[in-house]
Nucleic acid binder design. Structure first.
Length: 425
RNA sequence: CGGGAUGUGGUGUAACGGCUAACAUUCUCGGUUUGGGACCGAGCGAUUCCGGGUUCGAAUCCCGGCAUCCCGACCA
């Protein structure tokens, strides 16, 4: 992926009007700005700008996964039926959102919607002794879910990108320690994505070996979940798990909780021996006794995160991406066709680019109005304008997308100014 | 999967059962323009989702299918 580029190279186009077949704000804006293209209901192509956002989110996640000591792999999308039969999940009565297909030979295959079975099966090749553990592997890839009803743009698709982390431990204690570290890593991820304030560690049902599981919910009006928030502890309880037992466990009372709509942006599960028993993933302990591996799985819906962020970090003119995931850091615009200005803009572009700043340079011969409208729509954090007017004011104009303040600064000070402001991650 | 709505140039819309399916935008060409999606002129672009039916005549009415959106159900 190029760090910087000229806008004239961008083949996508912006639109003034949202397509009729999208009602969700996230999809309307992402399509208007040319970040995604709709293939069919619940299925979207990631275009250059959208892909850049996704890559940045992925890299934030990668850093945190690496920090946990997890190693990245790439799992296959085609999965064999046998592993799923061992866990009992091949049956459509149990899992109804499978996409299944078959080989020419007639052998049945599944299109991955999760990887507990596949990874557990795979790890049998690599785990045999307590010396091999603990292990954590993660995977960032496209998965498929045959949703009966796709909805809300990127929020609930049939094909989407996600990150899955699987952990393999010798004991519950070893697992629990790792689980807590993952919890913290997740919170740091949402923080880095600019969702820290609106994302809550949420207690939900579904824990195999505890009264509840943990999920991460981000406030949004388009959310499908209702959560009850404790502002004091910055945690929440999913409506489905709002019972006396859970409240007591968390030392919470109903009175201090407030209700809100939210989107599930991640979840973490202690799987215990559920899959290791089903697929017979074992290790020999120090005494030579065979034990089942204690597992955990941890997911983050990357595409859905793009949807949530698009939904919440935008105004009537377009996106307001946080610096950490904006497709570019700086949007450089030049107005008019004046040769001197054009040369200066070109030089500025190269200076910023060579300094390692990600610049989108609008070198098109479009009119100012169109360039400004596109800049607002794209939502790149810093907008730099070079024009006759800016020259009269002493150099270039600098404006942050999120604010209204316009500053004029000398061209030779621009780089230093930007370097000072732009967060380094 | 139950219910509702909608399908018309690339995009957004209009058109009483009746003229060559209209307007805006995009796009192409020429000209004038350059700080909030400019203006003038000339063009290109449609099997009105698909199939059947009613009618002298269907974008329009009826039936079936498909697609998309929304509500619900569902949702490791």
């Amino acid at each position: 992926m190029m760090a910087s580029m000229k806008q004239s190279q961008l083949f996508t186009k912006t639109r003034k009007e949202a397509p009729r077949d999208e009602e969700a704000r996230n999809a309307q804006l992402l399509i208007r700005a040319g970040f995604i293209h709709k293939e069919m209901a619940g299925v979207y192509d990631l275009l250059p700008l959208g892909l850049r956002v996704v890559r940045k989110i992925e890299n934030i996640i990668r850093d945190e996964m690496d920090g946990l000591g997890a190693l990245e792999i790439q799992s296959s999308a085609l999965q064999k039926k046998e592993a799923w039969e061992q866990s009992g999940r091949w049956n459509d009565e149990i899992v109804d959102n499978w996409f299944k297909t078959e080989l020419k030979s007639g052998q049945q295959l599944g299109l991955a919607f999760t990887h507990e079975e596949a990874i557990t099966s795979m790890m049998k090749s690599f785990i045999s002794s307590y010396r091999d553990l603990p292990i954590a592997v993660y995977d960032i890839r496209t998965i498929f879910r045959n949703e009966e009803r796709a909805k809300s743009g990127l929020m609930r698709g049939r094909e989407f990108n996600w990150k899955a982390l699987y952990s393999f431990a010798r004991s519950k204690e070893e697992h629990d320690t790792f689980y807590e570290k993952v919890k913290d890593a997740y919170l740091r991820i949402y923080e880095k994505l600019g969702l820290g304030g609106s994302t809550y560690l949420t207690y939900a049902l579904g824990g195999s070996f505890s009264p509840y599981s943990h999920e991460f919910q981000t406030l949004s009006e388009v959310g499908e979940d209702t959560i009850y928030i404790s502002d004091e502890q910055h945690i929440a309880v999913n409506e489905e798990a709002l019972n006396e037992e859970v409240l007591k466990d968390l030392s919470l009372s109903r009175e201090e909780l407030r209700e809100a709509k939210a989107v599930e942006v991640g979840n973490i599960f202690s799987l215990g021996e559920k899959f290791s028993r089903a697929l017979n993933l074992t290790f020999k302990d120090e005494n030579g006794t065979e034990q089942f591996v204690y597992m955990g799985s941890y997911g983050i819906g990357i595409t859905r995160l793009v949807g949530v962020i698009a939904e919440t970090m935008s105004d009537e003119r377009g996106f307001i991406w946080p610096e950490s995931i904006a497709p570019f850091q700086v949007h450089l615009l030049v107005f008019g066709e004046n040769d001197t200005l054009r040369i200066e803009a070109e030089n500025l572009y190269h200076d910023l680019k060579n300094a390692g700043i990600e610049v989108l340079y609008d070198d098109r011969s479009a009119r100012p109005g169109e360039k400004l409208a596109d800049a607002d729509l794209f939502g790149i954090p810093y907008r730099v304008v070079l024009s006759e007017r800016s020259k009269e004011q002493g150099g270039v104009e600098l404006k942050e997308r999120k604010g209204d303040e316009v500053e004029y600064i000398a061209q030779d000070r621009l780089l230093a100014e930007l370097q000072q402001r732009i967060e380094t991650i």
